[in-house]
Simulated scan of single mutants.
Amino acid sequence: MIAILQFGGSNCDRDAERALEYLGMDAERVWYEDGLPAETTGVLLPGGFSYGDYLRAGAMAARAPVMEAVRTCADRGVPVLGVCNGAQIGCESGLTPGAFTTNASARFQCEPVFLRVENADTPWTRAYEAGDVLSIPIAHGEGRFEADDDTYDRLVSEDRVLFRYCDADGDVTDAANPNGSRGNVAGVLGERDTVAVLMPHPERATLPELGSTDGQGILRGFETAPARLDGAR
């Protein structure tokens, strides 16, 4: 069962649940105070505004006790995906390096963007080829990825950049960068390739009636899950 972890202020949890169930996966929304069920085989940290984005986006949720269980899952190879606010929580909790900060425009941006697949040899991108261009929407005010030089260079050298913002032809340009992210980075991997965060919303590009199904392959990364994670709580 894929646990969609809810915090106060999560608002994309139902979208994520519907998208995963559309793909034939068993998913359940789980309130953070209840802990992760023992049958957890994947964890999705959904979008929203956990705790009103006080202090920094994702900072308070990242310090909730349940995140220790999420880190245990990640260490055991259980697929963990953070989307938008979930990506901010993932960085704040140390699941992935770097940080997501205020957009260069200093405004909330909600629009479709293009992403170029940088590494197709991961659970989250195995449905694509390197260089494929996906159309997936964003909806964030603090989506600008930042990392110090050493961290950024390590991400690049270890092939841990999953996606970069690009134009329709796959060219990575400043004009195609919606938020000023360093290197046009839209998503990165943790120490294991079963852990990933990204700012665009694949759950909003999964159901055909929403206009794009390009996000389906990302969510299918949960199909790499182990049979069961005992004692997740």
Results as ranks from 00 to 15, higher is better:
Gly221Trp: 02
Asn119Pro: 04
Ala147Glu: 07
Glu33Tyr: 07
Gly187Asp: 10
Ala225Thr: 07
Thr40Trp: 01
Thr224Asn: 12
Val70Thr: 09
Glu223Leu: 14
Arg29Tyr: 01
Asp153Ala: 13
Val83Gly: 01
Arg182Val: 14
Ala205Asn: 09
Asn179Cys: 14
Thr101Asp: 13
Thr41Phe: 01
Glu191Leu: 05
Thr96Val: 15
Cys166Leu: 06
Arg192Tyr: 04
Phe7Cys: 03
Leu115Asn: 08
Pro112Met: 12
Gly94Tyr: 06
Cys110Leu: 08
Arg154Asn: 06
Val30His: 00
His140Asp: 08
Tyr152Met: 15
Phe222Thr: 07
Ala106Pro: 01
Glu28Ala: 15
Arg56Gln: 15
Val185Gly: 04
Ile218Ser: 02
Ala168His: 09
Phe163Trp: 10
Ala186His: 05
Ala38Glu: 15
Asp53Glu: 14
Phe163Ala: 03
Gly82Arg: 05
Tyr165Gln: 05
Phe163Gln: 02
Thr125Leu: 02
Thr122Phe: 02
Gly8Pro: 15
Ala16Asp: 09
Arg14Ile: 04
Tyr165Leu: 06
Thr96Ala: 12
Pro200Thr: 13
Gln6Asn: 14
Gly143Val: 07
Arg164His: 11
Cys12Lys: 10
Phe49Glu: 03
Leu5Ala: 05
Ala57Arg: 03
Val113Met: 11
Leu189Cys: 13
Pro65Asp: 13
Glu209His: 13
Ser10His: 03
Pro200Glu: 13
Ser157Phe: 00
Met199Ala: 03
Met199Gln: 12
Val133Ala: 09
Ala3Val: 09
Gly180Tyr: 07
Pro208Ala: 06
Gly94His: 06
Arg29Gly: 00
Gly58Phe: 10
Gly8Ser: 12
Met199Gly: 02
Tyr51Thr: 07
Gly52Trp: 08
Ala62Ile: 03
Ala87Cys: 14
Thr125Ile: 02
Ile136Asp: 00
Gly211Trp: 05
Ala205Gly: 02
Gln88Asn: 10
Arg29Asp: 00
Ala38Thr: 14
Asp174Pro: 01
Ser93Ala: 15
Glu209Arg: 11
Trp31Arg: 14
Gly141Glu: 09
Arg164Gly: 11
Asp159Glu: 12
Cys12Leu: 09
Thr224Ile: 05
Gln109Arg: 13
Gln109Gly: 05
Phe145Gln: 05
Tyr54Ala: 11
Ala196Ser: 09
Val195Ala: 09
Asp193Val: 06
Ser10Pro: 01
Gly143Arg: 04
Leu81Trp: 08
Asp174Ile: 00
Phe222Tyr: 08
Asp171Val: 13
Gly217Cys: 05
Gly187His: 10
Val133Asn: 08
Cys84Tyr: 02
Gly180Asn: 11
Val188Ile: 15
Pro97Trp: 00
